[in-house]
């Protein structure tokens, strides 16, 4: 491997690089501390192995079986109070730490959930999930648990609504480094009139065809120069 390639992969895996570096420093300073850290890590690792594969399988199946309309109906912009309630509920019956919630929310967002409800799911997943409440009641007392719950649920709904006001879905789609959002990104790069001039029903359909069916990148007759430039950039990335 040449130096440029090595640097490239280090840059791509910034966190891993940093972690390995931190461990080297600790091991040099004290091998005992290093070993203890690894032991601590292994228990988290086991937890991850129990939860993440199952989460990914469920979300993969949701991806192929559940239609965009269904998700939009439950968690989308117009879902109102029902959507908030469903979001708290799905977060409450979850397992695992917050990082397990990211791929779940990512899939739901891709399928049409509102930003606010994503935040509610993330937060509920983190602070009011069932197993946590049970442990909490054991250690902190039932009244502590109930009072915290009563304060927390409205708070996370507020956090969701405010985040949804500040951060647009377009912003998330543009800034996510996940490839799965390519269709969405291309849809944004198209003029967005859904005029049908390209023989696809909507810009979304066109975007999907561009990604999946390898059609002519200049399919859109009404795209201007900036649209075309953006499209070329996005499609080259694949």
């Amino acid at each position: 491997m040449n130096l440029g390639k090595l640097l490239g992969s280090l840059k791509k895996n910034k966190i891993a690089t940093f972690t390995i570096f931190a461990y080297i420093v600790v091991f040099v300073y004290s091998p005992y501390l290093g070993l203890d850290s690894l032991k601590m890590t292994s228990s988290y690792f086991i937890e991850m192995l129990q939860i993440l594969p199952a989460v990914f399988v469920v979300m993969g199946l949701v991806e192929v079986w559940v239609s965009r309309d269904t998700i939009m109906g439950i968690f989308g912009k117009g879902s109102g109070l029902k959507g908030r309630f469903a979001s708290v509920l799905i977060g409450s019956f979850s397992a695992g730490p917050i990082y397990a919630a990211f791929p779940v929310c990512y899939t739901l967002l891709k399928k049409g959930s509102a930003v606010s409800n994503i935040v509610i799911i993330l937060s509920a997943w983190a602070v009011v999930k069932m197993p946590m409440l049970i442990v909490e009641a054991q250690f902190m007392g039932v009244s502590f648990m109930i009072v915290r719950y009563i304060f927390t649920v409205p708070a996370i709904i507020m956090i969701g609504v405010i985040t949804g006001k500040i951060v647009s879905k377009e912003n998330i789609i543009k800034n996510s480094s996940k490839e799965g959002l390519l269709v969405e990104r291309i849809e944004l790069a198209l003029p967005g009139h859904s005029c049908g001039a390209c023989d696809y029903k909507s810009c979304r359909e066109t975007a999907r065809a561009l990604v999946l069916e390898d059609i002519d990148p200049n399919v859109c007759p009404v795209a201007d120069e900036s649209n075309k430039k953006e499209l070329r950039k996005l499609l080259q990335g694949t």
Partner: peptide
């Protein structure tokens, strides 16, 4: 599902090691 896992597993393991 596998793509989802592949895309994030290095990061998550690194973060867990950092927490440890």
């Amino acid at each position: 599902a596998t793509n989802m896992g592949k895309g994030i597993v290095v990061e998550i393991v690194s973060i867990l090691a950092l927490i440890g």
